[in-house]
Nucleic acid binder design. Structure first.
Length: 646
RNA sequence: GCCUCUUUAGCUCAGCUGGUAGAGCAGCGGUUUCGUAAACCGCAGGUCGCGGGUUCAAGUCCCGUGAGAGGCUCCA
């Protein structure tokens, strides 16, 4: 007998070799029907694997991450099985589950695969799933595993096996398909009821660009058709919220192939939106003791040699700008920090002056790889909401905490309810990647960890993700449909003060070196606007909306009154438009709703008589008549309630 | 940068196997003067991303190149 401990602490005894599915069945048939995998002593197992020691277990259903991953892992095998049947002789790479589904990397050799093949693949998978093929685990020796794949002529699996430790290597077999795999898997393929092949893409073997490019096929599967339908609806919703689409529809920004890839052109409405965001952050920063500075878009190459950016990123940057003067070279600035260091150095600083907090909406240029460019989220010219805090070492943690407060205030104001924070530390084994002394790195890392703890942030820690000059704290927000975006970043830097020989005079009249914090709560204006659009689906908070109100006369008879309303509102600092086209009111409402304008004011005979407006709120419909002054109060109160005090 | 796909009017898209470009919306002109998500009629609008090639003939086939999409690698 074995003792099985459940998550609630209860213990039951089962015969030696009991399986997960048997345990589930002993609890209820319904559970047995839903369970997908089981964690045994911290390791996720197949439901059909016998338990031979006392164990702590947890059963996983579809709503557990572990359950989904087991499901999708088997689905990846199912897809590979279907592909092998359809395209004999293909060579399999790897096929893991991912956050939303699974993929398999495959060397198709002479076959070419396109979207048109998806239905065929889906159909074959469905057919194989329907056969309820048992998925059988088998331990094999390394030699045996190698021999199997050598015989099959699959170089990728041979490479994978060669890199594995000796000992237990497992194969999973379903029907005539066998794959090298650690597992775990579903008991049989019959669990998979709904299948969708999503996309196709190239992927380097083992993620290394020196290796051969394999074909990666992405798919997703579900235990019920209904769930697939819901997922497809969600994908549609994501498409609707795509900031590139909204940016075009709302006339916020555009790109021109003549201006260049990744160089956004902000249209009047987009510029208005950015301006509102800037004003908002300027106000917050003023309260936190920041001072605005302005620096040029270029700087001498030497500046970046001092900072270390040229050595580190020079080869991936825009080429230096030359001048009529022999030997003179400038760079488009890829960072604002060197300029800000020079501002710090422009006069002697006393310990009493610190912290010095220099802020700038600084536009920088980076030559991102062409394949990486994406809408406003990844561009070659962008404006950081940048600031550099120069402080004494004893002020570091406190300053860091204040920056966290700014970030959290922004998230709150803009209604990002869920967020996580990631502490990125250096990889102590990869010294080549970083500059600076061990001692300073350790001080910086502990300052971040302590500051995050002080504000009770839930953090994850990733080793090896630090910037080359220091560790950082990055913020990720969840948007309205659950997607994660990286936004703000706060970074500690002992390195640049060293390189720029920054100093302050201490109370003992000796010279000391300040510490720097780089921070950008939005990250960049471009990226932030993109995330905001996707989060809100274009329904921006009223204070950010480029156009806040549009006045719609019922017919041309009332356009004089509409103009009076329009002027009155604009004079009251409410950004107002008028739509006095010769169209029916229904048409005007439709068009202006589609433009995502927060308030539509309908004016006709009744309104003109009473000196009122009929208010229609975007997405909510008719709110009835009110006086113009009441409406202005309504708008102002709305703005105030959204912009809560710090 | 690499792989796959896409590129036709301001926007969204149609144009099969090569025979010389089409729709809806937007725009403009008119009719209508209207009460909460699309009134009606008419007009105009395109060197089919760009450059070569094959062909009697290229939006369509081939080569090169720009831009976009989905991934991979990268991200100060």
């Amino acid at each position: 007998m074995v003792k099985i401990t459940f998550p609630d602490g209860s213990i039951r005894e089962y015969p030696l070799g009991v399986t997960g599915i048997e345990i589930a069945r002993s609890i209820s048939e319904r559970l047995a029907a839903e369970v997908l995998s089981i964690t045994v002593n911290g390791e996720v197992w197949d439901l059909t694997r016998g338990i031979t020691t006392d164990a702590t277990v947890k059963l996983h259903k579809w709503d557990d991450e572990e359950g989904k991953h087991t499901f999708w892992h088997t689905s990846a095998h199912l897809m590979a099985q279907a592909l092998e049947a359809l395209y004999p002789g293909i060579k399999l790479g790897i096929g893991p589950s991912i956050d939303n589904g699974f993929y398999y990397d495959i060397d198709f050799d002479s076959y070419t695969i396109s979207d048109d093949d998806f239905p065929k693949i889906e159909q074959k998978m469905a057919e194989l799933a329907h056969q309820k093929l048992d998925v059988v685990r088998k331990d094999v020796s390394k030699d045996e595993a190698l021999a199997t794949y050598k015989a099959k002529g699959d170089p990728y699996k041979v490479e994978l096996i060669s890199d594995l430790q000796d000992g237990t290597i497992t194969f999973y077999t379903q029907g005539d398909f066998t794959d090298l795999c650690r597992g775990p898997h579903l008991p049989n393929t019959g669990y998979i009821k709904a299948i969708k092949i999503l996309s196709i893409a190239g992927a380097y073997w083992r993620g290394n660009e020196k290796n051969k490019m394999l074909t990666r096929i992405y798919g997703i599967t579900f235990p019920q058709k209904k769930l697939l339908d819901e997922y497809l609806v969600m994908l549609e919703e994501a498409k609707k919220r795509d900031h590139r689409k909204l940016g075009k529809e709302m006339e916020l920004f555009t790109f021109s192939q003549h201006v260049g890839q990744g160089l956004p052109l902000w249209l009047p409405r987009g510029a208005q939106l950015r301006f509102q965001l800037e004003m908002f952050l300027r106000k917050v920063q003023q309260k936190y003791g920041y001072e605005q500075v302005i620096t040029p878009h270029i700087g001498q190459k030497e500046l970046y040699e001092i900072s270390g950016h040229w050595a580190k990123y020079g080869k991936d940057s825009f080429r230096p700008i030359t001048t009529p003067q022999e030997g003179e070279e400038f760079l488009l600035k890829p960072m604002n920090c060197p300029h800000h260091c020079e501002i710090y150095k422009s006069k002697p600083r006393s310990y009493k002056d610190l912290p010095v907090r220099l802020a700038e909406f600084g536009t920088v240029y980076r030559y991102e790889q062409s394949g990486e460019l994406h809408g406003l989220t990844r561009v070659r010219g962008f404006t950081q909401d940048d600031a550099h805090i120069f402080c004494r070492p004893d002020q570091l943690k406190q300053e860091f905490v204040k920056v966290i407060d700014i970030v959290l205030y922004i998230f709150k104001t803009l209604n990002f309810k869920e967020y996580t924070a990631q502490v990125s530390l250096r990889d102590p084994k990869d010294r080549e990647k970083y500059i600076g002394t061990d001692e300073n790195w350790e001080k910086a890392e502990s300052a971040i960890i302590e500051a995050a703890a002080e504000r009770g942030l839930k953090t994850t820690t990733v080793v090896g993700e630090a910037a080359f000059y220091g560790p950082k704290l990055d913020f990720m927000v969840n948007d309205a449909i659950g997607r994660k975006w990286q936004l703000g970043t706060i970074q500690v830097d002992y390195n640049l003060p060293e390189r720029f020989q920054l100093e302050y005079i201490g109370s003992d009249d000796k010279r000391y070196r300040p510490v720097m914090i780089h921070r950008a709560p939005f990250g960049s204006m471009e990226r932030f606007v993109a995330v905001l659009l996707e989060h809100t689906g274009g329904k921006l908070p009223i204070w950010l909306a480029p156009d806040q109100v549009v006045v719609l006369p019922i017919s041309e008879k009332y356009s004089d009154y509409a103009k009076k309303v329009f002027n009155y509102l604009n004079n009251s600092d409410i950004r107002t438009l008028i739509d006095d086209r010769n169209e029916k009111i229904g048409k005007k409402i439709r068009d202006n709703e589609l433009r995502h304008i927060p308030y539509l004011l309908i004016v006709g005979e009744k309104e003109e008589e009473n000196g009122t407006v009929a208010v229609r709120v975007q997405g909510e419909g008719d709110k009835g008549q009110m006086s113009l002054d009441d409406f202005i109060m309504l708008v102002r109160n709305n703005i105030e309630s959204q912009l809560t005090e710090i």
